[in-house]
C-alpha cells in the first residue's frame, strides 16, 4: 500500500512538469505583453520593466528562471500588484477558499452518498424521488443561478442569513456559499452512488452474503458499500476540479476574498503572472487531491495495489 502511494506520487511529477511547461509557453507566445495596457508607456520605462521581470532574456532562459523559481515556491511577480507577489496573494486567499472548498466537498460527499444509497435501496420510493429532484436541481440550475435565488430568498426576503461577505468567518456566512458549491456535486455523487449501489446489490457476491444470513445491515455496510464506493471515489478527482471552478463563481457572487476572486480579477485585467501562478497552484492542488483519491481507490479495490 505504501509503495503504491509512493509510486503514484512519483508519477505526478511528469504530469505537473508537462502542465507547467505548456502553460508557460502558451502564455509567453501570446500576442501582446503584460504592459500593453490602454495607456502607452515610454519605451525606456517599458525596457526597464522588461529587464526587471527578465522579459528581455531569450524565452528558454526565462523558462528556466521560472521553473527554478517555482521549485523554490516563488510563483513570480504579479504585474498589477506592487505590494504582493503571486505567491503572497494566493496565500492571502487560500484560507478562505480552502475552508469553503473543503466544507462543500465534505458536505457534497456526505449528502450525495447518503441520498444515493437510500435511493438505491428504496428504488422508486420516497428517498428515490428526493434524489431525483436533487439531481435535477443540481444539474439544471447552474450555480450562478442558484446563488442569486438563495440570496434573494434567505438573504433578502427572509433575512435569515447574510447575503454575502466573510464577516467574522462564522457559520452563518458560510452556509449559502457552501450550499451553492455543494449542491450540484451532491446531486452528481448521489446519482453515481445510486447507480453503482444498484449494480453492486445485483452482484453475485451480494447474493452469497445474503445466502449466509448475515442480515441486511451487514450485507449493505460490509459487503456492498466498499465496492459501491469505487465509482464515487473515482469521480471525486474530477469533482475536486469542478468544485474549484465553482469557487470562482461563488467567491465572486458572495464577495468572498478567496483565490478565485483574485484569479477572475487577474484574468479580466490580463495580469499574466497572476493568472499563470494561480493556474499552476490550482493544478498542483488538484493533482495532489487526485493522488489522495487514487490512494483511497486502492484501499477500496485491492486489485489496483498490485499494479
Amino acid at each position: 500500500m505504501l509503495s503504491y502511494a509512493f509510486r503514484r506520487l512519483l508519477s505526478t511529477i511528469p504530469v505537473l512538469w508537462i502542465a507547467v511547461t505548456a502553460c508557460f509557453f502558451v502564455l509567453r507566445l501570446a500576442p501582446g505583453g503584460p504592459f500593453d495596457g490602454e495607456r502607452s508607456l515610454p519605451p525606456a520605462i517599458l525596457q526597464n520593466l522588461a529587464a526587471h521581470y527578465n522579459l528581455d532574456k531569450p524565452l528558454i532562459q526565462q523558462y528556466f528562471y521560472y521553473v527554478g523559481d517555482l521549485l523554490r515556491g516563488d510563483l513570480g511577480p504579479s504585474f498589477s500588484s506592487e505590494d504582493f507577489n503571486v505567491a503572497q496573494q494566493i496565500m492571502i486567499g487560500l484560507p478562505y477558499t480552502f475552508t469553503l472548498g473543503m466544507t462543500a466537498f465534505a458536505l457534497a460527499i456526505i449528502i450525495g452518498v447518503a441520498v444515493g444509497c437510500l435511493g438505491a435501496l428504496y428504488q422508486n420510493k420516497m428517498p428515490d424521488y428526493v434524489l431525483g429532484a436533487m439531481i435535477l436541481v443540481g444539474v439544471v440550475f447552474p450555480n450562478f443561478l442558484i446563488a442569486p435565488i438563495l440570496q434573494l430568498v434567505f438573504g433578502i426576503q427572509l433575512a435569515w442569513l447574510p447575503v454575502g461577505g466573510w464577516g467574522d468567518g462564522s457559520l452563518k456566512f458560510l452556509v449559502l456559499p457552501v450550499v451553492v458549491m455543494a449542491l450540484p456535486h451532491a446531486g452528481r455523487i448521489s446519482r453515481i452512488t445510486r447507480g453503482s449501489m444498484i449494480e453492486v446489490m445485483n452482484q453475485n457476491f451480494i447474493r452469497t452474503a445474503k445466502a449466509k444470513g448475515i442480515g441486511p445491515r451487514l450485507t449493505v455496510m460490509r459487503h456492498a458499500l466498499k465496492p459501491a464506493m469505487m465509482p464515487v471515489v473515482s469521480y471525486l478527482g474530477p469533482a475536486a476540479s469542478y468544485l474549484l471552478t465553482g469557487s470562482l463563481v461563488v467567491e465572486s457572487i458572495f464577495g468572498l476574498p478567496g483565490i478565485g476572486r483574485y484569479f477572475i480579477n487577474a484574468a479580466l485585467n490580463r495580469d499574466y503572472g497572476m493568472v499563470l501562478g494561480t493556474v499552476i497552484f490550482y493544478m498542483v492542488l488538484i493533482v495532489f487531491l487526485n493522488l489522495i483519491v487514487d490512494i483511497a481507490y486502492a484501499w477500496l479495490d485491492p486489485k489496483v495495489r498490485n499494479r
Binding site: 452482484q203 453475485n204 452469497t208 465496492p227 477500496l300 485491492p302 486489485k303
Partner: peptide, 8 residues
C-alpha cells in the same frame, strides 16, 4: 470468480 466479495 464472482461469488466472493473482491474487496474483502
Amino acid at each position: 470468480m464472482t461469488a466472493l466479495n473482491p474487496s474483502l
